[in-house]
Amino acid sequence: MRFSEPLLEGRLIERYKRFLADVVLETGERVTAHCANPGAMMGLKEPGSRVFLSRASNPKRKLAYNWEFVEIAAGGGPLQLIGINTSRPNLLVAEALRENRLAPFAGYDRVRPEVKYGRNSRVDFLLEKDGEQPCYLEVKNCHLMREAGFAEFPDCVAARSAKHLYELADMAAAGARAALVYVIQMRAERFDVARDIDPAYDKAFRHALAAGVESYAYICRINPGEVTIDHPVDIVTPR
Rank of each mutant, 00 (worst) to 15 (best):
Met1Tyr: 03
Met1Ala: 14
Glu5Phe: 06
Gly10Tyr: 03
Gly10Leu: 05
Arg11Gln: 10
Arg15Leu: 06
Tyr16Asp: 03
Lys17Arg: 09
Phe19Gln: 04
Leu20Asn: 08
Asp22Ile: 07
Arg30Thr: 15
Val31Asn: 01
His34Asn: 08
His34Cys: 04
Asn37Ile: 04
Gly43Arg: 06
Pro47Gln: 11
Ser49Pro: 02
Arg50Gln: 12
Phe52Val: 13
Ala56Trp: 06
Arg61Ala: 15
Ala64Asp: 01
Tyr65Met: 05
Phe69Cys: 07
Ala74Asp: 05
Leu79Lys: 13
Leu81Cys: 10
Gly83Thr: 13
Asn85Phe: 09
Thr86His: 11
Thr86Leu: 12
Ser87Val: 07
Pro89Ala: 10
Leu92Ser: 01
Glu95Met: 04
Ala96His: 08
Pro104Asn: 10
Phe105Met: 10
Gly107Phe: 04
Lys116Thr: 14
Lys116Phe: 05
Val123Lys: 03
Val123Phe: 02
Val123Asn: 02
Leu126Lys: 10
Asp130Phe: 04
Val139Arg: 05
Val139Gln: 10
Val139Met: 07
Lys140Asn: 13
Leu144Trp: 04
Ala148Leu: 01
Glu152Asn: 06
Pro154Val: 13
Cys156Tyr: 03
Ala159Tyr: 04
Ala162Asn: 07
Lys163Ile: 01
Ala174Lys: 12
Gly175Arg: 05
Gly175Ala: 13
Ala178Glu: 10
Leu180His: 05
Ala188Met: 10
Glu189Ala: 15
Ala194Val: 08
Asp196Arg: 08
Asp202Gln: 11
Phe205Asn: 00
Arg206Lys: 09
Leu209His: 09
Cys220Tyr: 06
Cys220Trp: 02
Gly225Cys: 11
Gly225Met: 08
Glu226Ser: 15
Val233Pro: 03
Ile235Val: 15
Pro238Ser: 14
